[in-house]
Design a protein around this nucleic acid. Structure first.
Lengths: 137, 137
DNA sequence: TTAATATCTCTAGTCACTATAGATATTAGG
DNA sequence: CCTAATATCTATAGTGACTAGAGATATTAA
């Protein structure tokens, strides 16, 4: 059996986060020691590893909860699991595209500044005046 | 003079957000009508436009506050304004790079799934087992 | 004048944690 | 076996940048 600290070390999920996940019912409340401390088995280790991995990939708690529910039903079709992953992939791509537009705009703003005092600073000017922008954001 | 609703329409910042910005002292409390409603002048319109633009670019409230302070001192050098913009550009690029790594991993996971039930679903399997990953994240 | 719309303040909720305080358990060293 | 250091416990509040809602008051158009 693992203490919460050992589980934390093995999974890379911080101790307060593990307790938070328990509160959110993402992991079930484990057994307790005589002195009321949490004691985990390998089942919980695997489940938390799954959660950590999914969080690292940027999946939201609700999506993870859904995936965990799915994984508890091995005979069900996996279309739903695929849909969740694909939706998240699409969202990730959209976010990348948006950030790239912002990157271009920020680059234009910073590169464009050749003033030396605020009154002719292109950064400040660009923020004040949306007409100086190339694209809409 | 503009009502808060008119200011909202002109800037694209929602009414509760404007009040929130006032609370955060990002915009100063404006004059009031006889009936205690907010009345804005062009000074506030310009300031809020600046804020909106900076937020759209992803700048944090604290960074915007700093830029606003800078813009109030036209004779000061603009090195600080540039630094803020460049820092944010660097952060944006780092975020893009991270999201691209996640994209690759998500793509691999979704494309790799040819099972039809959860028990041999590659999505679920990949999340359970970090060894199946190409890169570290 | 009246009905519809806008605004007011205040509080609480969102997401996914993180931080803190004060109390109790466990463990390693002597 | 005792003690000191470390780990864990619960509970509450804070983070950032808003958003939602309730119930009261103002303004505006017909």
């Amino acid at each position: 059996m693992l203490s919460i600290g050992e589980l934390s070390t093995k999974t890379g999920v911080k101790v307060p986060t593990i307790r938070y996940y328990e509160q959110m019912k993402l992991v079930t409340a484990p057994e307790r020691s005589e002195g009321n401390q949490r004691r985990y088995s390998n089942v919980e280790l695997e489940r938390l590893t799954f959660i950590k991995h999914a969080r690292d990939l940027g999946l939201k708690i609700d999506a993870i909860r859904e995936l965990l529910d799915l994984s508890a039903h091995p005979e069900q079709p996996c279309a739903d699991a695929n849909r969740i992953a694909e939706d998240h992939l699409a969202a990730t791509r959209a976010r990348i595209a948006q950030l790239q537009r912002l990157e271009a705009e920020l680059m234009r703003i910073t590169v464009g500044c050749h003033g030396d005092s605020i009154k002719d600073c292109y950064v400040i000017e660009s923020l004040s005046n949306h007409n100086l922008c190339d694209n809409s954001h």
